[in-house]
Amino acid sequence: MIKDITLGQYFPMHSFVHKMDPRMKLLFVTSFIVMVFLSNNFISLGFCLLVTAFVIAISKIPLKTVLKGLRPIILIIAITSILQIAYNEGGIVLVDIWRIKITSGGVLTAVFMALRISLLIVMSTMLTYTTSPTSLTNGLDRIFAPFKKIGLDFHTITMIMTIALRFIPTLIEEVDKIMSAQKSRGANFEQGNIIKRAKALIPLFIPLLFNSIRRAYELANAMTCRCYNGGQGKTTMNALKFSYRDYIALGSVAGVIASVILLNIYCGEYNAEFTFGITV
């Protein structure tokens, strides 16, 4: 069971989106996020929603899975919406009971904000759903490679990320083993109050920490034996290459930017009244 865990949130599939270069995906997602923030009316934002829907459709990832990614931020969306409804006064008064006053401007702003946050999260999770951690770190490594000239060594950071991902399953297995070993000696991880349970974890974490340090030492030796010297003059077997897909994506990035800007300009007046309330 424990061996079946997925690394990150990657859903391996064969689709246009999966086969895109990770660098292009990063560019696409970053510019999309900027565009969502720049959208100042419902039509621009609606366009962003359409783009998201299109990306989900061609990625072949089930909608249910995508929406699951929104679960952790439901609370944030709810709080933002409530605050918008409570404090935004504009448009027609819809409800006015005792001290609660709900206006159309407030409701529209709440919907707008909720949609904006959801789009940001959905598009970012699409990135991790369709890109394996290895190719993501590979992409980051390549994007930040030029920064080495000004003294920022991103290679070390991406190497750390790769090793961390590599060792997550190993450490989970180890936790499982230590837990069994401690349980067979009478340790109890499930009962008692929170302090008691936290205390019970000490005999779990000390051996885990000790073993991890030893692992790190052995891994360092193995890496030295394989001529690792901090990534100087390193080549890559699976060199990243732009394909026709990435040029299509590049065109789409330009298209999205242009569309949002044009929609902002031409439809901005359409809802001028509450637009003022919602521009961040």
């Binding site: 290895t134 790769t162 090793i163 590599r166 052995e218 193995a222």
Partner: peptide, 13 residues
């Protein structure tokens, strides 16, 4: 050099 514990020699995923 190949060491005893295979887990601690594999770097990539």
């Amino acid at each position: 050099v190949v060491f005893q514990n295979p887990d601690n020699q594999i770097v990539a995923t």
